[in-house]
């Protein structure tokens, strides 16, 4: 790889994942996430990109019978977030997630952003106000909502709701943020806003994004991983993947011959 000196924020080591029906959705994935970089996961539907992404914040724990095998190690403390002894709630505080469809809570804009702090027992109004403002500014939403912080979040447009969800995820100062197709439910303008936002956020945290939109991967990401049938086929600089992939399968997918 071109930038071997970039520090690694987290890495998957020989990661396998089994759904409760026994299906093996991930097959021995080993890949690093570089600090303050955007890594994109591309691949056809059902290739395991979302499954892989959801391993990072242990979302699979919510459904009984799912099983991880292998490690996802977070640096600098070398914690394996998949370890049975690690509290998934702590993991989710360090690795936050933005979903495919905006999913604000049935609360005010303010309370949506404050949610992560509230569940951590924070009740100081002044700290909360500051954090909410900071997060909304970080998600480029502050100017649009500062006069109606106590309106119901559902009254926002789809793009605003998605930025609200990003603000919500930002409010708890995560180290990594994972995005599961964050713009697939949005129009082109809202999509551009979110992409711009991701690039801005890169200076603060490490980003992993699943996308079906290859132009999006090419536009925003520093590194791109191509997955197929639960396997990591190729992982490299985004420029390299999109101009000169070393694997035939990757090239076929990117040029639209397949998938």
């Amino acid at each position: 790889m071109a930038t071997v000196t970039t520090p690694i924020k987290a890495e998957a080591r020989d990661l396998n994942f089994f759904y409760s029906n026994g299906a093996r959705a991930l097959k021995g994935i080993t890949m690093p996430l570089y600090e303050n970089k955007i890594t994109a996961l591309i691949g056809p539907s059902g290739c395991g990109k979302s499954t892989f992404l959801r391993c990072f914040n242990r979302m699979h724990d919510l459904y009984p019978g799912n099983q991880y095998q292998g490690q996802i190690v977070m640096h600098p403390d070398n914690t394996n977030v998949l370890d049975q002894g690690v509290d998934p709630i702590e993991v989710r505080m360090r690795i936050s997630m933005v979903f495919q469809k905006p999913n604000p809570f049935p609360k005010s804009i303010y309370e949506n952003v404050a949610y992560g702090l509230r569940v951590r027992g924070e009740n100081n109004k002044r700290i909360m106000d500051d954090k909410v403002e900071e997060a909304l500014k970080g998600a480029a939403l502050w100017n649009e909502v500062k006069d109606r912080l106590h309106d119901l979040a559902f009254n926002l447009s789809g793009g605003q709701q998605q930025r609200l969800c990003i603000a919500r995820a930002l409010a708890t100062d995560p180290e990594i943020m994972v995005f599961d197709e964050p713009t697939s439910a949005l129009d082109p303008i809202a999509t551009a806003n979110i992409e711009e936002l991701m690039v801005e956020l890169r200076s603060k945290l490490t980003i992993l994004v699943v996308t079906h939109n290859m132009q999006q991967a090419a536009r925003v990401s520093d590194y791109t991983a191509y997955m197929y049938l639960g396997e990591l086929i190729e992982y490299d600089d985004t420029d390299k993947i999109f101009t000169n992939p070393s694997r035939k399968e990757t090239e076929d997918y990117i040029t639209g011959k397949f998938g």
Binding site: R92, F99, N103, F105, V119
Partner: peptide
């Protein structure tokens, strides 16, 4: 379910 997942992903019990 997406709303519940949103809450869990924020570290809620």
């Amino acid at each position: 379910m997406s709303m519940r997942e949103g809450s869990y992903a924020m570290g809620a019990t």
